[in-house]
Computed example of a mutant assay.
Amino acid sequence: MRVVKGILLGLVSLFICYRSYAVVLDNSTLMIDNIQPSDVFMRARLIEGELLTFDLNEDLFTKYNSTVAYQVINAQPREVFFIAKSLNLNAKRFSFKHTDNVGREFSVHVYRNEPLHVYRVFSEVLKSIRAVQSSLTIESYNIRIPHEPATPTQVYNKTLSNNRLLSILNSNKMQPKDVIKVVEYCYELSLLLFASQYPGVKIAPYVQLEIEPIDKTPTDVFYLLIDTFQTLKSYAKLNFNLTSMDIIAVDISREILPSDVIDLTMALNAELTYLAYQAKVKIPANKDRGRQEVTPSMVFDMVSRIQHVLNQKND
């Protein structure tokens, strides 16, 4: 009897400890169950403030080079988590450039749907940024961020803005080989999703592009991804009655870079991963195929394959 009472007492204590576990946000303390989009937005704005400390002369983040290539409308929580992971990848790259602190990895195939998880990714981003500040003896941002209501769309667009700033600090080191890892994973997901929705139905043969003669650029890939995302949006509505965010390309004077493209691939990844979960498809782990050289034309061809699969039953 004493043993049973001891076990019950231990379980009660464990439950109390769990409920008491808190996340510290600046000078306030939030219960883990109470993280809201407004709290996540505060953290995104804090990240922005920390990034601005690297441009004290205000000549690095100019209007020309810091303009974001696209914005979103009506973002869903599932979509925010993936763009947060893209930001973390950029922050890890920045930290590795200046320190030996590479930060925590968040795999491409992992899906989460709560503000808390985005908050945790942002916390990892801050660790990477502050490690660089310490290495370069740059003073941390110390202005208190006011708490105000926010939507997932605001969090998403602020994250895009932060991603652009980090890309500048990284000297736009993102390459097509970084992009194709996500794109190939999206293609694999599209095949699995199609097979689960239309068992026994064969996909029409895909006519492969002649890659060598075609001189595609990141701009070509960027606009093909926007078009593919719209195709996927129709697919989600038709097959799952689900609403996805809208993506609007922004008229910018600078060139489109691989760092702009990878954010769109993460948006595509978010939708396909979520649909796969809805269809109870076993989510595969992403594989590193160890490619030595990847061109924008190769990425363009792979995105075309994804669009081809989605269009099979999208009438």
Results as ranks from 00 to 15, higher is better:
residue 12 V to K: 03
residue 20 S to G: 15
residue 22 A to E: 07
residue 22 A to S: 10
residue 29 T to Y: 15
residue 36 Q to F: 10
residue 38 S to V: 12
residue 39 D to R: 01
residue 45 R to I: 02
residue 49 G to C: 00
residue 49 G to F: 01
residue 50 E to Q: 09
residue 50 E to T: 02
residue 51 L to N: 01
residue 54 F to I: 04
residue 56 L to T: 03
residue 61 F to I: 01
residue 63 K to H: 04
residue 66 S to K: 05
residue 68 V to M: 08
residue 69 A to E: 12
residue 72 V to A: 07
residue 75 A to L: 11
residue 75 A to Y: 11
residue 83 I to C: 08
residue 86 S to Q: 11
residue 88 N to C: 13
residue 93 R to Q: 05
residue 93 R to F: 01
residue 94 F to C: 02
residue 99 T to D: 06
residue 101 N to L: 08
residue 101 N to F: 13
residue 103 G to C: 15
residue 106 F to Y: 15
residue 111 Y to R: 00
residue 111 Y to V: 06
residue 112 R to I: 06
residue 118 V to N: 01
residue 122 F to E: 04
residue 124 E to C: 13
residue 138 I to C: 03
residue 151 T to K: 10
residue 153 T to D: 11
residue 153 T to K: 13
residue 155 V to E: 09
residue 166 L to A: 01
residue 166 L to S: 01
residue 166 L to N: 00
residue 168 I to L: 03
residue 170 N to W: 12
residue 177 K to D: 13
residue 180 I to C: 10
residue 183 V to G: 03
residue 185 Y to G: 15
residue 187 Y to G: 07
residue 189 L to V: 04
residue 190 S to K: 05
residue 191 L to S: 08
residue 192 L to E: 14
residue 193 L to E: 03
residue 197 Q to N: 10
residue 199 P to Y: 08
residue 201 V to N: 02
residue 202 K to G: 05
residue 202 K to R: 06
residue 203 I to N: 04
residue 206 Y to T: 04
residue 214 I to L: 13
residue 217 T to S: 15
residue 218 P to F: 07
residue 220 D to Y: 03
residue 221 V to K: 14
residue 221 V to Q: 07
residue 223 Y to Q: 09
residue 225 L to S: 03
residue 226 I to Q: 07
residue 227 D to V: 03
residue 228 T to P: 11
residue 234 S to C: 08
residue 250 V to C: 04
residue 254 R to V: 06
residue 254 R to M: 12
residue 255 E to R: 12
residue 255 E to D: 13
residue 257 L to I: 07
residue 257 L to T: 10
residue 259 S to H: 00
residue 263 D to K: 07
residue 263 D to C: 08
residue 264 L to E: 06
residue 268 L to G: 13
residue 270 A to Q: 04
residue 272 L to R: 08
residue 274 Y to N: 07
residue 275 L to V: 02
residue 284 P to R: 14
residue 286 N to M: 04
residue 286 N to C: 01
residue 290 G to T: 06
residue 292 Q to L: 14
residue 293 E to C: 09
residue 294 V to P: 12
residue 296 P to V: 08
residue 297 S to D: 13
residue 300 F to E: 14
residue 304 S to L: 11
residue 310 L to Y: 13
residue 315 D to H: 10
residue 315 D to G: 14
